[in-house]
Design a protein around this nucleic acid. Structure first.
Lengths: 346, 346
DNA sequence: GAAGATCGTTTGAACGTTCATATCCGACGC
DNA sequence: GCGTCGGATATGAACGTTCAAACGATCTTC
């Protein structure tokens, strides 16, 4: 068995050196430290490299130099009930940003029966990657604690603890929410509800806190409504309760576009016209919102800037050993669309 | 600058050998060929491996053995106008399937200014990966031609050419569509339209051909309607044209859920009740369809089976040098929901 | 009882690169 | 003329693993 095909021998540094009439090290320098070569030597060697199509063997390079040029991204589990459609866009941005820096992204996930920490340890111990990029960071996320203890480079989309590396980047959800509530207040609304998913996720809490701060600042009557679970059925049920109770809010701010989908569904069933009878705003700007009628007012996340900043911070740790002193907060951008109603609706 | 942190020396095979009182190779065998060891030796060595937390250095292993245990997945560009939400689910399935086989997934994308083939070549020449997993395969896909010429292992989600390795897996879209048209016909519909995105994508053509075959078989009046582009505006415009023209179809089969979203939007605007005035069916079963009212009849793709089959075929090529003689076709599963209307609607 | 055969283990080499150091060579200072 | 410097290139070693082959012990076989 295992009729392994004959090992595909590639072009090595030795081959290039022979053809160019220089030594191994000179070829290596042509790629890694071109300034050390006399211009004419560099040109000659480069020509031969091009001609033979030489690429340094990644394994050999890693073994000797200790650098892999690979970043691991522990993929959040994609719950079909609550597809983190944001993940698609974020991953996209991460791949682009790391590609530009000459790094590649390795998608990892714990094997069945393996804890998250064990999965990280395996990658560290086998020296497979140079660092980790984390997203969906929880409060007291065990992964952060573990990587901090191991002293292994990482960067996180979402705030880390005070005694952990401040290599995080996050969106100023609170401010974006305050702005959003301001827009709602400017349209004359007084009774406003925040629709949250329950689970105590940090980003949801930030958005809720921002909502509450906005409500306080603008002297509105604000109410927080939590959905017990993540699936459409539960969201619809909770939203219906909210919209059919007494003192129905005239505006709903949802903690995410996914929740806003439920608001649209219920509003339609109850004969409420969004933008007129009910103002709706949300968060994330998922692609699917392009289909909503009327178009949804929401907060757009600067995913490309986030990814770029994360990669930049991570590489600073990996390549220069410099850990950022403070996290980076980027603004979310409220995008006003008809679901909020005209400027002076009430 | 570059205050590179001191190289984190890990546990090596030598350390384990010393502690266990055996040779390097015996430790290596304990991991790679346990049957060669006397049971008691194996146990002793395993215990030391466990105790010291030894993991073979991936780079060293790759360098010597020529196998990387990494599969590259060229990530389709995630067009925000037509988010391949399927990609999320498929990628998910691929990561799971390859993880089970002990392989990891490297996400790759051509650098700016780099062609797809060049990006593949770079990975091949640098010996970074063992094989490629391709999706969104086009007719005469240049990537397939290139990998075939290079003799490099790959597996494709989508049919390959006749002179290329038959290492593909695909969904029997045509049959699923024929079945779907059967369901439509059984509900008494006679004028049926197929809504396609234009771009000449193989999977869309397969679905269209299946539709036409179904229409012929059931003696219906079938019409194919192509949307010039992919963004919501165009889809809505084309759909409106279709639904407001004379001889309006009583049933629409969309080439994808994304297109069906347009049908829902237009139907609502035109006052047509889906499931009563208009039957709607589609393809893909994206998560977002959970929000549609009434629920959408669509074709579910066996993404996990597909991913498993792809990985299995790819590893057979990589590890055993065996190229499958024929492609594998898996059935799509029509899921009947209220959008199709009750069994005898007309 | 000697010549194989089998099993379990060890030994030396090799994978392809980069690090650390050495060597060469021309220029310069005294 | 001699020593010194500095830039450009070359040499030997090392990274940690697995391969290929050798080794020693125990078991068959005639």
């Amino acid at each position: 068995m295992a009729a392994r095909r004959p090992r595909a021998r590639g072009v090595t540094v030795e081959d290039v050196a022979r053809v160019a009439g220089v030594s191994r090290q000179t070829v290596s320098n042509a790629l890694n430290a071109p300034h050390r070569l006399k211009p004419e030597t560099l040109e000659r060697v480069s020509a031969v490299i091009e001609e033979l199509g030489y690429r340094p063997d990644q394994s050999a390079r890693s073994l000797r130099s200790g650098t892999r040029r690979i970043i691991a991204y522990p993929a959040p589990v994609d719950d079909p009930a609550n597809p983190n459609a944001l993940m698609g866009g974020f991953l996209e941005a991460v791949v682009a940003a790391s590609g530009e820096a000459g790094y590649r992204v390795l998608l990892v996930r714990p094997r069945p029966g393996q804890s998250q920490e064990q999965a990280l340890d395996e990658l560290i111990a086998a020296r497979t990657v140079d660092g980790f990029l984390l997203s969906d960071v929880l409060r007291d996320d065990p992964r952060l604690a573990h990587l901090t203890r191991a002293g292994f480079p990482f960067a996180a989309f979402g705030r880390t603890g005070p005694d952990q590396p401040q290599s995080w980047v996050d969106v100023d959800s609170a401010q974006a929410m305050i702005d959003m509530v301001g827009l709602v207040a400017a349209r004359g609304h007084r009774r406003v509800a925040f629709l949250a998913s329950s689970s105590g996720l940090p980003w949801m809490d930030d958005r809720r806190d921002g909502f509450l701060a906005g409500v306080r600042r603008h002297g509105l009557a604000g109410q927080v409504y939590s959905v017990p679970g993540d699936d459409p059925g539960e969201i619809v049920r909770a939203t219906r309760e909210l919209l059919t109770g007494r003192d129905r809010p005239t505006a709903i701010v949802a903690g995410g576009d996914w929740l806003a989908l439920g608001v649209y569904t219920v509003a339609r069933a109850e004969g409420l016209e969004i933008g007129t009878d009910l103002a709706v705003a949300a968060f994330d700007d998922l692609p699917v919102t392009a289909w909503l009628q009327p178009a949804l007012t929401t907060v757009r996340l600067p995913l490309h800037r986030i990814a770029k900043a994360l990669i930049s911070r991570l590489l600073q740790i990996i390549e220069d050993g410099v850990t950022p002193r403070a996290g980076l907060v980027l603004p979310g951008e409220p995008v006003v669309r008809p679901s909020l109603g005209p400027p002076n609706a009430l």
